[in-house]
Simulated assay, not measured.
Amino acid sequence: MHTVARSRAFTRALSLSSLFIVGAACLPAAMAQTYPAKPVRSVAPYSPGSGPDAVMRILGERLTRNWGQQLVIDNKPGASGFIAIGDAKRAAPDGYTVLQVDNTHMALQPHVFKQLPYDPLKDFEPVAPVYFTNFFVVVAANSPWNNVGDLIKAAKAAPGGITYGSWGIGSVAHVGAAMLEAATDTKMVHVPFKDMGNVYTSVATGDIQWAFGSAATAGPMYQARKVKFLALAAPKRLPGYADVPTVGEAGGPAGFEVKTWVGLFAPVGTPKAAIEKINADVGKVLASAEVKERLATFGFEPYIGPPGELTKAIERDSRTFGEIVKRARISLD
């Protein structure tokens, strides 16, 4: 009698356990079907009207339409991105907060700050790559240099006599120039600016001799014929600027590349179903001809891939940046 009772109890418990397992397995699928059920907030360290902000608003407009829920852009610029990153880090990991940042925040800053208030890999989950942009070598329109080979010859002839600008110590433009110095065995002088726009004005007037700049940041000065682009630090030429050679084609180091990528991240512990949904929907938007065309006006190229692509990009860039930062002794604290 006791044996039969125990057997029935065991069967009942096993059935309940099976129901729990099946139910739990269905949760991600159920969430994917109903997500998002309320507005999603995108926190960003960029000012309204900046390139990354403009791209996020292009994405947001289309994702809002597709989801039936609004993607709210929450701009929190300043403090090297720490304000926005800290906000996202503290947010509930429920799929309703994403963080838009770039490789400066996730791969470079860990090397230039001894104490960082976040860990790119431990505090955040990668969600979706968004876009990347490579940098041009920008000189004054009347510069005697016509290619990167000319710049390198001048730097070798006058060690410490060539100046280049960037929008701050530890910026991608600063570290990119240090990469060029390392690749060409030259030594040049870095002149940091507080305002990015002043970098290219100073190049045009000859106050500094060159700088790295993107199509979005230096393009207007290029279109006005106040500066010229010697080369693009990329593996291939950029559509829309097909007459500008790569650094390798212009007498510089072969395969030399300096770029920024932008991606979306979420607080660690965010449900996988939400991440997969955002990734898939962002990828579809970026693959559309209309959005590709809009991004091209900034010189940006869609960066489409699974969440793990961002992890690989962080690890790859971190190795590169780490070596250069150590060699050039770049520090922000």
Rank of each mutant, 00 (worst) to 15 (best):
V268L: 02
V268N: 08
G269C: 01
T270F: 00
T270W: 00
T270I: 01
K272W: 00
K272H: 04
K272S: 13
A274V: 00
I275R: 06
E276H: 12
K277Y: 08
I278Y: 06
N279I: 02
N279M: 03
N279H: 03
A280D: 10
A280H: 09
D281E: 14
D281R: 04
G283S: 07
G283D: 07
K284F: 07
K284S: 12
V285H: 08
V285P: 08
V285E: 13
V285C: 09
L286S: 08
A287Q: 07
A287W: 06
A287V: 03
A287Y: 06
S288A: 09
S288W: 04
S288H: 04
S288D: 09
A289S: 07
E290Q: 07
E290Y: 01
E290I: 01
V291F: 06
V291L: 08
V291Y: 05
V291K: 00
K292Y: 04
E293Y: 00
L295E: 09
A296P: 07
A296N: 09
A296M: 09
A296Y: 00
T297G: 12
T297H: 11
T297M: 15
G299L: 06
E301R: 02
E301A: 13
P302N: 09
Y303G: 02
I304H: 06
I304Q: 07
G305D: 08
P306S: 08
P306Y: 01
P306V: 03
G308L: 03
E309P: 01
E309A: 11
E309Y: 00
L310V: 08
T311L: 11
K312V: 05
K312I: 03
A313Y: 01
A313R: 11
A313Q: 10
I314S: 03
I314M: 11
E315D: 05
E315W: 01
R316D: 08
D317C: 11
D317R: 11
R319M: 12
R319Q: 14
F321Q: 05
F321I: 08
G322Q: 12
E323C: 08
E323M: 14
V325R: 11
R327D: 15
R327Q: 15
R329H: 15
I330N: 10
I330P: 13
I330K: 10
S331W: 14
S331F: 15
S331E: 14
L332G: 02
D333K: 12
